[in-house]
Design a protein around this nucleic acid. Structure first.
Lengths: 279, 279
DNA sequence: TATTCCGATAGTGAC
DNA sequence: GTCACTATCGGAATGAG
């Protein structure tokens, strides 16, 4: 790994972790008796225009339309650390501008011969695929580490780990804590809208302000999301020419069917997230 | 005609006629050179929630859903003059709560045996139809008078009329001015959503903040709008059981086809209105 | 073809 | 299945006490 490659550099622009003051205040509110009318009348959290809080260099990439990922592959050094998590000769790893989960990175291969292909075609090349897998393995670890950093304090499975860490002296062998790597998934979209090959590596919670539309959700929770371990694709794999999304949205955690009701699903994902992070 | 029956009482809650100060200021603005950028950037006039500026008695009727017109027929005296333009034993005439043209009145027959029928059925009764025609003739004159009051100052055809009116002495015979009655149309909807029979009498401009949706427009500009002079309907008239609107919207004045593009049509109607009132 | 509110759906423009 | 913006289309309720 090269310069900047530290999990602590991973800093989502749309972090969903509230600051400590907010949490304390929220908790105080929850302990009051709820006023049902106030509950009904309270404004839904605004869908904020996600562009507004973005570093200006990254914001400029959005003006390139479907070629918006190219600037990262060509000139990664021009972006702030908060955006470009790692780069070397072959890859650039960035925080997704519009993360669809608590942690959501993209691996961008820099080879301009390969990176204009879809995964289905680019990964026919075994050597290229092997290179990508190596980077993917590293980035999965980064994502897992970032999950632990962000959510570890909520996790029941982390209690022995935290306790040992706080002990004096710190034991030689720490209890393992929660297996955050198992919460990470990676792959490409069968029919990406961005022209440059990008491997998504993200937590599976699907909890994010940027998770707004049906197709956002379906693109990570159906077979439209081609996992890295599925490559190279069988010759007759239907996803070499993907048709349409299934219309029904299924909760990734409990399996409940939400049809096309995105607003309802969003509320539900909020609840699932609270339980999931406490596992 | 009975109490209140004066054209000057007709006062739309959504009048599009600016007050004199506003007009003067607008004219000063028009004489300046336009800044094209400012023109592009200026916010579109908000679609205001039409309920907010309504007298409370009238606002209450909207809670009755499809029976919202009934209160007027039962208790017309409980409404302000700005709403109820005229009433007698047989009819109540009101300003439409959501006028779809510059002037838009409704004639509500009070006979509760008749007024729960659609026009197609109620007007099979020749005597009832004759009564309604008599009232319709009066209300058309009211609408024409109100058009003259509101738009006369813009109309080229009114110039001789206004000049004579301003002369000293006023001539014995005034030039006729614009024939506003020919701009008025009247009829019922083939498939009304409100349960009580209501005869629309309105100017044909289709220019109003309340003209928002495709079906608003189509309901007055297609054969869905059954003119009073078409009653009683022939036995085999298709509109005794009306199916669906045609989907394409046609400008009533120039015949241009706007497909389903209501926003575009609205902009266009704005322009047509400016020309029409100046005729 | 009452309105209003919300949300799902659809097209465009960025280049 | 890039986003953001606008507008169209579609259903449910008719909205505290």
């Amino acid at each position: 790994m090269a310069a900047r490659a530290s999990a602590d550099d991973v800093e989502g622009d749309h972090s969903t972790v509230a600051d400590p003051k907010m949490e304390a205040s929220q908790h105080a509110h929850d302990t009051q008796r709820h006023n049902a009318f106030a509950e009904l009348m309270k404004p839904k959290p605004k869908s904020l225009s996600t562009h507004k809080n973005m570093d200006s260099r990254s914001a400029r990439t959005t003006q390139h339309g479907r070629d918006g990922l190219r600037p990262y592959t060509v000139e990664p050094e021009s972006f702030p650390d908060s955006r470009v998590v790692h780069y070397d000769d072959k890859f650039v790893v960035i925080n997704d501008l519009f993360p669809k989960a608590t942690v959501h990175l993209l691996i961008l291969p820099r080879d301009s011969k390969k990176n204009v292909l879809r995964g289905q075609d680019a990964f026919e090349d075994a050597e290229f695929l092997a290179d990508c897998r190596k980077m993917e393995a590293k980035v999965r670890i980064m994502v897992a580490a970032e999950l632990r950093r962000r959510l570890g304090k909520y996790s029941a499975a982390e209690v022995p780990h935290r306790a040992a860490w706080d002990a004096d002296p710190i034991p030689d062998v720490l209890p393992p804590g929660r297996d955050w790597k198992s919460e990470v998934m990676s792959g490409t979209h069968a029919n990406p809208s961005m022209n440059h090959l990008h491997i998504h590596v993200l937590s599976r919670d699907m909890h994010s302000q940027c998770m707004k539309k049906t197709n956002h959700y379906q693109s990570f929770t159906t077979d439209f999301f081609i996992r890295m371990h599925e490559y190279p694709l069988a010759d007759d794999d239907q996803r070499r020419d993907y048709g349409w999304f299934p219309k029904e949205m299924i909760c990734w955690r409990c399996g409940k069917n939400f049809g096309n009701k995105m607003a309802k699903l969003k509320d539900h994902l909020e609840e699932e997230f609270e339980e999931w992070k406490r596992e």
